[in-house]
Nucleic acid binder design. Structure first.
Lengths: 134, 134
DNA sequence: CTGTATCCCTCCTGATACTG
DNA sequence: CAGTATCAGGAGGGATACAG
């Protein structure tokens, strides 16, 4: 309702903006774009429990298509969030695991999850109220 | 590189998943979908500095089209992140401001920004390395 | 000043089938 | 088992013009 006082982390945000990044150049978007995909955070979460093979991941997230599983894993690997290790077994198996950088990102997701958990009731209420007026 | 040990916040995430939300029903997606839009977080940030009128917002984020500005503000208002107040001035003016709930979400964005700030160099390096191999 | 309405186009996503 | 290829649908986003 009111303007909240500036705090330390937000100052970082101001700094980031004033450092003059363009929209395509903005480091924040590099991260936000990871969150935005439908499956990225879910897969990061699965791998945070522990390293998993391709097939195991597919069974852990049954709604994902094989195409999107491959594609999302590739993107996360490209950006260094996860590692991909081919093991020369008889039918070759591939294991995916969180990198240190990927792991360092998980607490942020966890905080968002906790926040969502506390606020989703109110959000849905607001939404229904808003829609009722229109 | 290694599987990180489970910590408290992540347990919340596990709990959220095991509480059996479907993909469309998941409260976490309610929040993540806000972050995912191209403009939502940018506008939240602008309003975190202080309440702003429509025209001021448009000038603050010059790259946004009028259509997307209206649309994004409407979505954020609908979910209770921001408030919209019409002031009966001569040419009517509309002021947008963060709600308490919206303000409580800002520290999370700030942490992501800080993380992005620390890691975007490495992410870009990983990306170039990955692309070079292919 | 603050929006709405319309058109268009790209990207994300899913379904299916196929390969080493 | 792990991955690629192809096709199709829909949402997100931009440009422009118009309205209260």
């Amino acid at each position: 309702m009111t303007a909240t006082p500036m705090n330390e982390p937000i100052m970082d945000l101001v700094a980031a903006k004033e450092r003059g990044f363009t929209l395509d150049d903005c480091p924040v978007r590099d991260v936000l774009d990871k969150l935005s995909g439908k499956w990225a955070t879910l897969l990061l979460f699965e791998l945070h429990i522990g390293p998993k093979r391709f097939g195991v991941l597919r069974r852990s997230v049954p709604d994902i298509s094989q195409r999107m599983l491959t594609q999302t894993l590739r993107t996360l690997e490209r950006d260094g969030f996860i590692s991909r290790t081919v093991k020369p077994t008889k039918p070759p198996s591939v294991e995916y695991a969180l990198t240190d950088m990927g792991a360092s990102f998980m607490p942020l997701i966890a905080e968002i999850v906790a926040w969502a958990d506390q606020n989703h009731e109110q959000i849905r209420l607001m939404r229904r109220t808003f829609d009722a007026v229109e």
